[in-house]
Amino acid sequence: MAESPHGEDAALVAVQSALADRPGVLAGARTLSHFGEHSLGWLAVAALGALLAPARRRAWLAAGAGAFLAHAAAVVIKRVVRRERPHHPAIAVNVSTPSRLSFPSAHATSTTAASILLGRATGLPLPAILVPPMALSRLVLGVHYPSDVLTGVAVGAAVAKAVTMVTERGEGV
Rank of each mutant, 00 (worst) to 15 (best):
G152R: 07
V155Q: 08
P89V: 04
P89D: 04
A72S: 15
M134A: 12
V80E: 12
I129M: 13
V93G: 05
V80Y: 10
A114S: 06
V131N: 04
G66Q: 04
S137N: 05
A29E: 11
V95R: 00
A158I: 09
G41N: 14
I116F: 15
T151N: 02
A128T: 05
A90N: 03
S137V: 01
V75Q: 14
A55M: 01
L52E: 06
A65N: 02
V76T: 14
S99T: 15
A106M: 03
T112A: 12
V143F: 00
S39C: 15
A73L: 09
A62E: 12
I77D: 09
R120S: 08
L52P: 06
L124D: 01
H34Y: 14
L136D: 01
M134P: 03
A50Q: 11
G152T: 12
L61R: 13
L32N: 09
P98S: 06
Y145L: 04
R57N: 09
W42V: 07
L139K: 04
A50K: 05
G123N: 07
A158W: 13
P98L: 05
F103R: 08
P54K: 03
G66L: 01
V149G: 03
V131L: 03
A55F: 03
E84S: 13
L32F: 15
R56Q: 15
I77A: 01
L26C: 15
H87K: 03
A128N: 00
G142V: 01
S102M: 04
G119V: 01
S115V: 13
M134T: 09
K78S: 02
P125M: 11
A157C: 10
H71A: 11
W60V: 06
I77M: 06
D148H: 02
P133K: 02
S137G: 07
K78L: 01
F35S: 12
L26H: 11
A113N: 02
P146Q: 02
A73K: 12
S96K: 03
P104W: 02
L61I: 04
R138V: 02
V143E: 00
V95P: 00
A44G: 13
V81P: 07
L51V: 12
A67F: 00
A113Y: 04
I77R: 06
T111W: 02
I91F: 00
R100N: 09
H38V: 15
L51Q: 13
G152S: 07
L51K: 06
A53R: 14
A128I: 06
N94H: 12
A114M: 11
V80T: 13
T97C: 02
K78N: 07
W42F: 15
H88G: 04
A47I: 08
H38P: 01
W42N: 09
H88A: 05
I116C: 09
A46E: 10
P86N: 08
L117P: 06
F68M: 11
G142K: 02
L52A: 15
L40P: 01
K78A: 04
A113V: 09
P98R: 05
I129Q: 03
R82C: 05
T112D: 09
A90S: 11
I129W: 12
A73V: 10
R82K: 10
G36L: 08
R85T: 08
A108V: 06
I91A: 00
A121H: 02
R58T: 11
A106C: 10
L48I: 15
S110E: 14
V81S: 07
H107Q: 08
F68K: 11
